[in-house]
Structure formats: structure tokens, C-alpha cells
């Protein structure tokens, strides 16, 4: 029994018929071709599929697409404005916060979520609040440095901190 869902993804209104058992991550990747959101473990452990749902970082493999009916979803594709990187993206670049890059979209969306809740976190708080995201390459040092760097930049120039849910278009 298919259900009709209406939601806003990266600022664009969408309407689709989905099976109730379809996960949000599959809806984003397979229906909308937003493949920046990765499927890592598919068991809620790794955080690679993290997106913002109504402004909060969630694991899109633990949300049904039907649960996002009426909601606003932001994926990693919403971060950059044209060729201008979001401060979190720029900070991951500057601080070399990745190696293979598989965890990076989820890591960045979790970082955006944590900076919304805590704009000026300590290193300990960053580590604690990224515990839902696994990285098998970096040992996390540069990821923590990147989040700290992004926080500093967003504090000093709040205008450079877009990304409210669905703020930027495609």
C-alpha cells in the first residue's frame, strides 16, 4: 500500500508515492538521485547517512520516508552555495578532515547539527557529539580540528553560516 508523501528537500518541494517500508536514505538516493548521502553500515551505527530533518541531524537509515512527510530535509548537497563552500566544508578541506571521504557527508551534516546546538564547543564536546559518526581513516584528530575551525569561522562571521533546513537551493 503506497503512501503519498510531500516534503521539502534542500529547499525544493517534492511529492512522491513510496512504499511505507522505504527508508529516507533510499528515497533521497534512489528517487531524488541525491547520492551525497551515503549508506554505510545500514544498522544505525556509522552515521554516514546523516541528514538534517527539520534542522536536526538524524540518521536517514533509521527514518522511514513516510515519517518525513511534511518535513524539511537537508542533505550534504545543500551546503555549498554554487562554488562557495559552507564553512564546515571549507574547514574539512583546510584541516584535511578526511582521507577516503566515505564518512565525510555524514560527518559534515553531524557537524552542522552539533554547531546549531552548540556554536562554540570544546574539543571534548566535539568528540562527544560526533560519537554517532564513525571514520575508519583519520583517527578523528583532523575532523575535530575541522569542526573547531568551522565553529571559529562561523562565530566570527555569522553571515558565513547558512544552512538552516532547506535554506539553499540545488
Amino acid at each position: 500500500m503506497r503512501q503519498t508523501i510531500k516534503l521539502k528537500v534542500n529547499g525544493v518541494e517534492r511529492q512522491d508515492d513510496v512504499e511505507p517500508r522505504m527508508l529516507l536514505v533510499h528515497y533521497l538516493r534512489d528517487r531524488l538521485n541525491l547520492t551525497g548521502t551515503h549508506v554505510g553500515c545500514d544498522t544505525g551505527q556509522c552515521g554516514a547517512c546523516t541528514v538534517l530533518l527539520n534542522g536536526e541531524a538524524v540518521k536517514s537509515c533509521m527514518v522511514l520516508a513516510v515519517q518525513a512527510n511534511g518535513a524539511e530535509v537537508s542533505t550534504v548537497e545543500s551546503l555549498a552555495r554554487g562554488t562557495e563552500y559552507h564553512p564546515v566544508q571549507q574547514a574539512f578541506w583546510d584541516m584535511h578532515g578526511l582521507q577516503c571521504g566515505f564518512c565525510t557527508p555524514g560527518m559534515m551534516m553531524a557537524a552542522v547539527g552539533l554547531l546549531k546546538r552548540n556554536p562554540n564547543p570544546t574539543d571534548d564536546e566535539i568528540r562527544e557529539q560526533l560519537e554517532g559518526n564513525l571514520c575508519r581513516c583519520t583517527g578523528y584528530q583532523n575532523i575535530v580540528a575541522a569542526v573547531r575551525s568551522a565553529a571559529e569561522k562561523m562565530q566570527s562571521t555569522p553571515a558565513a553560516a547558512p544552512v538552516t533546513a532547506g535554506a539553499s537551493g540545488e
Binding site: 544505525g44 552515521g47 546523516t50 530533518l53 536536526e56 541531524a57 538524524v58 540518521k59 533509521m62 527514518v63 553531524a110 547539527g113 552539533l114 546546538r117 557529539q129 560519537e131 554517532g132 559518526n133
Partner: peptide, 9 residues
Amino acid sequence: VGDPQVRAR
């Protein structure tokens, strides 16, 4: 409990 993503939902 869990991690921040779990605590959000």
C-alpha cells in the same frame, strides 16, 4: 543515551 542523532529522534 545513544548518540546525538538518536537523541534527536
